[in-house]
Amino acid sequence: MQWVWTNFDTIWGLTLAHVGLSVIPIVVGFVLSIPLGYAASRSKVARSVLLTAGGILYTIPSLALFVAIPVIIGGAILDPRNVVIALTIYAVAIMVRTAADAFASVPADVQDSATAIGFSGVQRFFAVDLPLAGPVLLAGIRVVSVSTVSLLSIGAIIGVSNLGSLFTDGFQRNFYTEIWTGLVCILLVALVFDVVLVVIARILMPWNRRSSARSVRAHARRAALS
């Protein structure tokens, strides 16, 4: 414990770096997967193309993707941005499927009624489809959030500073406290992110507090398979 207090500044710095590097993939992944998921829910061809592509990208092991990204985008090999891009790719790969399922779960007669009372396509998307898909989207983004926070630590291997650096450093120094500190901090970051997402969802979907619990749990269970 002594070590934690004396190195508090370092740990705090790494935690902030961890938060900074993992927020971007989660947010960008979510935003990108909305139109992609919507497209996938509208057309069978789009669905099979997007989900297959997502499946293949998600299959690429993280270590390989982290070092392959700079080559594909042409940046420096050890640039932290590579890890952010790789994690965004994973986030989209997981999230597109959830988003497609979320939009597909909006009842067709609700959509038809919206059209019948004069909603334009865009209005219907924002006022009907998106809110109704909300609970499932929330379940998906929670999965993305947890796995992004955890996967980021692998970036430490290729020299990207984050809480994972405590693992590589602690291992080299044969120092358990440092590794445990890293584990606990990562779990805490994941927990805080999860709470933030749930709070945001409560504010955005106030009608959803009760009924969602069940559907979200059911979806979390299914998402556990992805």
Binding site: S150, I157, I179, I186
Partner: peptide, 13 residues
């Protein structure tokens, strides 16, 4: 899903 692989490996190894 939340547990970082790298940390688990470091501790156990």
């Amino acid at each position: 899903r939340a547990l970082p692989t790298l940390g688990l490996l470091a501790v156990l190894i």
